[in-house]
Amino acid sequence: DETGKELVLVLYDYQEKSPREVTIKKGDILTLLNSTNKDWWKIEVNDRQGFVPAAYLKKLD
């Protein structure tokens, strides 16, 4: 059920640097789980959840 889920576009590649982070690729469109922290957003990638720098993402309307 995708209702109410926010999507984000990945602006730059990011390689995870800790187990709490996930790797993302430029151009991916992913589900945003939590954006309350202005610097690190929690997203879902391939059934994995983790954090990436918010500056690497853009919210889609």
Rank of each mutant, 00 (worst) to 15 (best):
D1T: 14
T3A: 13
T3G: 13
G4M: 14
G4S: 13
G4E: 13
K5A: 09
K5Y: 13
E6N: 12
E6P: 10
L7T: 08
L7C: 10
V8C: 09
V8N: 00
V8S: 02
L9S: 04
L9Q: 07
L9W: 07
L11R: 05
Y12A: 14
Y12E: 13
Y12V: 09
Y14A: 01
Y14K: 01
Q15M: 12
E16R: 12
E16T: 08
E16D: 05
K17G: 07
K17H: 08
S18D: 11
P19I: 09
R20K: 10
R20T: 11
E21P: 05
E21M: 04
E21A: 05
E21S: 06
E21H: 05
V22H: 03
V22R: 03
V22P: 02
K25S: 09
K25Q: 09
K25L: 07
K25G: 05
K26M: 08
G27K: 02
D28F: 08
D28P: 01
D28Y: 08
L30I: 09
T31W: 15
T31I: 15
T31S: 09
L32W: 01
L33A: 03
N34F: 07
T36Q: 13
T36M: 10
N37M: 08
K38C: 09
K38A: 13
D39K: 15
D39F: 15
D39H: 15
W40T: 02
W40S: 03
W41E: 00
K42D: 02
K42Y: 15
I43C: 04
I43H: 00
I43A: 01
E44A: 10
V45T: 13
D47M: 11
Q49A: 10
Q49E: 10
G50I: 08
F51N: 03
V52K: 00
P53I: 02
P53Y: 03
A54Y: 03
A54K: 06
A55S: 12
A55W: 11
Y56S: 08
Y56M: 08
Y56I: 09
Y56G: 05
L57G: 00
L57M: 04
L57Y: 01
K58R: 13
K58M: 14
K59A: 06
K59V: 09
K59I: 14
L60M: 08
L60G: 03
L60F: 08
D61T: 14
D61P: 13
